[in-house]
């Protein structure tokens, strides 16, 4: 089956793109919540696009790995990026505010959903946000923030700290920004 043009661009109204805007799909989360979304927004997810193209959609698309709260966030993102007339600058600003408002646990839920649904832009944004938070932070901050229990013995830990002693300088304070 021939692939349709993924990202119709340009001002010329492509009848197929027009149809996608008016057609709506229903996405169903793992906890049974249903969400309506325009097809043009939904297919920004490559995984959903494939399901639509293979016609296994049949009205309702079940997403058994994404819970309702996370799916609602993902849909907010997709709608913004499918919005007519939203400039790149506007989208960039939206992305930044979108991820900076999320708690760490939510960011991890969204990164998994974005990976599963294959939404590259969202995946990139969330990854960047998590990484930016980690930069220059102490080991203790990383453990506390991501709920990580050390599985090293105190001796092993001491040894590692010695080996990379120079890397322990210039760490930011653990106070969250």
């Amino acid at each position: 089956m021939a692939r349709k043009n993924r990202n119709p661009v340009g001002k010329n109204v492509d009848p197929e793109a027009q149809k996608k805007k008016t057609r709506t799909l229903t996405l169903k989360s793992s906890d049974g919540q249903e969400f309506s979304i325009s097809e043009s927004a939904a297919v920004l997810s490559i995984a959903i696009e494939n399901m639509v193209e293979d016609d296994c959609a049949g009205g309702v698309i079940p997403l058994p790995l994404v819970d309702g709260g996370t799916l609602a966030r993902v849909i907010t993102y997709l709608n913004k990026h499918a919005e007519d007339g939203a400039s790149d600058e506007e989208k960039r600003k939206f992305d930044e505010e979108f991820v900076s408002g999320m708690e760490m646990g939510v960011l991890f839920d969204v990164v998994l959903a974005a990976n599963y649904l294959d939404i590259r832009g969202l995946l990139r944004e969330v990854r960047r946000r998590i990484a930016d938070r980690m930069k220059n932070k102490s080991v203790e901050w990383v453990r506390k923030t991501f709920h990580i229990e050390s599985d090293f013995t105190p001796e092993e830990e001491e040894q590692m700290k010695k080996e990379f002693a120079w890397a322990w300088e210039g760490v930011d304070s653990d106070v969250d920004d």
Binding site: R127, I130, V142, I148, S150, D151, F152, F164
Partner: peptide, 26 residues
Amino acid sequence: IFLLILNRVSDIMTLLRCRSVSKRFN
């Protein structure tokens, strides 16, 4: 995905410190 986040951190000082967070980080 874990690795992609580490690549995004990219700063070597942070990464070397992070090795002692846990065995998986290491």
